[in-house]
Design a protein around this nucleic acid. Structure first.
Lengths: 124, 124
DNA sequence: CTCCTGTTTAGAAGTTTGTCGAAGTAGTTG
DNA sequence: CAACTACTTCGACAAACTTCTAAACAGGAG
């Protein structure tokens, strides 16, 4: 059921990116091109249950709550994470499709021609 | 022989990135988090022979030569490309290991446990 | 309702980044 | 050597970014 569904742009070395695709991807990459946001994304994604509370995230850094909130907003605006308030706390989780899109962009491409490069994730 | 050899950091959602790894990766991601540099990288990687001359790259953009040169330097400093002068022209090519490192970072991770995720590139 | 905690918004200060024009280096050709 | 082309370095400046403090908003407890 977790179909992965990688689509948007071929690996970066297959064919030149269009101006539009490049601009589009740059937004996502900019969001992830910061040490704090990288760690936030990693913490959220690797947290038990696939989601993490802002309170946990804030405690893990030597930064103020507004700063963490700002970084989370950047990740959210870029479509990489999604947040939900449940009672007192707000929980964030990764949007896998977005992360997969980045993975596909930098996927290894040993041959110029599309050989049989397959990810064996769902053995059917 | 193209062993790929992906190593450095587990996928982003496997375990929280260390502060050092995050800072390290952020340098590479910052280099790639710009529409012009993304297109440059893509043009270089997808160019015939695996390398492109600066003259070709400069012509493809509406930017001055110094600006293109600056962007190439950012990519080079980040370890993503390497340049070589041959006679009159300078040629740049992608460093695959660096790009693969980014690919590994965003590789899909459907299960928390390390299942049999294998890239079938060298059928031995 | 009032107070307290968790989170976001608003505004400001300091730094980094993208771009340019001008000038410098490298190699080819006459 | 002189002139020309290809590319890089330098210095400058506007725009964008990271971080902070202060203040607002949201929900739970007394």
């Amino acid at each position: 059921m977790t179909a992965v569904t990688i689509q948007c742009c071929a690996p970066i070395a297959r064919e030149p990116l269009s101006e539009t695709d490049a601009a589009d991807l740059a937004v996502m990459l900019k969001a992830v091109a910061d040490p704090v946001r990288l760690r936030l994304l990693s913490m959220i994604g690797s947290h038990a249950g696939g989601e993490a509370c802002v309170c946990d995230l804030t405690d893990a850094f030597d930064l103020t709550a507004p700063t963490i909130s700002h970084h989370l907003k950047v990740l959210r605006t870029a479509g990489l994470i999604d947040g939900e308030r449940r009672g007192t706390w707000v929980y964030y989780r990764i949007i896998p499709e977005a992360v997969n899109r980045l993975g596909a962009l930098f996927a290894p491409l040993t041959e110029p021609a599309p050989r049989s490069v397959e990810l064996e994730l769902t053995p059917a």
